[in-house]
């Protein structure tokens, strides 16, 4: 099973693997916002938590469609399904690999981008904490969506439509935690943690079931 994680990380970091794509996208989105909204620092400070979270969400979505699609195309998904590796574990590891290559870099880069949006100084720890707690949910929910749409033509488009609504609770609590900070942010953070844990516990099974149906 460790072999699968190592392989996915290795492929992600090789040429054309897509590592850094999400991160660059996040950067561009956040840089573009002040151009669109205007350089009014008070306005930017107000919308910064929301923009950072929406940006992270879209960046996470960007690399999701490759999660199973590449293994599907070259036939390794069917071969993995007939191997001793349980598909539930495969789904969880795929989510972990996605988080390590997308969620974690986004979390680490977010404080730097907060400066561009004039994020309130006291909100920085909350931004990092909320992304750290919330991005695993984005990866796991996305893995489930990718498992559902694997093998479909233009599956990436359908994937976005399926997954984005499921991201709503994480987005609400995540942005709220950053906005409120010490004043009630902990509650939002705890609720988001609950969503993440629930997703981690249930969705690998759902993803594996979807993969089995799609592999038939």
């Amino acid at each position: 099973m460790r072999a699968l994680l190592l392989r996915d990380l290795r492929i992600a970091t090789r040429a054309g693997g897509g590592f850094g794509l999400g991160l660059a996208f996040f950067l561009i989105v956040v840089v573009l916002v002040p151009f669109g909204v205007g350089a009014e620092t008070a306005t930017l400070r107000l919308i910064a938590p929301g923009i950072l979270w929406v940006g992270a969400l879209l960046a996470a979505l960007l690399t999701l469609d490759r999660l199973f699609a590449l293994d599907w195309e070259d036939g390794s998904l069917a071969l993995i399904a007939t191997s001793p590796a349980p598909l539930e574990g495969v789904a969880l590891l795929k989510a972990l690999a996605h988080w390590l290559t997308t969620g974690l870099p986004l979390t680490l880069a977010a404080p730097l981008l907060g400066v561009l949006l004039n994020l309130a100084p006291e909100a920085y720890p909350w931004l990092v904490a909320s992304l750290l707690v919330g991005t695993p949910a984005l990866s796991v929910i996305g893995t489930f969506g990718a498992a559902l749409t694997v093998g479909l033509r233009r599956g990436g488009l359908l994937l976005s439509l399926l997954v984005l609504p499921l991201y709503v609770p994480t987005l609400i609590f995540g942005a709220e935690a950053v906005r409120r900070g010490a004043d009630g942010g902990a509650t939002a953070l705890a609720l988001m943690g609950g969503i993440t844990l629930g997703a981690l516990a249930l969705l690998p099974f759902a993803a594996a079931a979807a993969l089995r149906v799609n592999l038939r």
Binding site: G75, A78, L79, T82
Partner: peptide, 30 residues
């Protein structure tokens, strides 16, 4: 006995070397 299946598609990753590809499968099968 358990079966090993070889499909039309080889399941070989172009970005990895031959040895890396095979080491991956060896890892999966222990």
């Amino acid at each position: 006995g358990q079966a090993a299946y070889a499909s039309h598609a080889d399941g070989v990753k172009g970005q990895l070397t031959v040895a890396e590809n095979l080491r991956f499968w060896a890892g999966i099968y222990g």
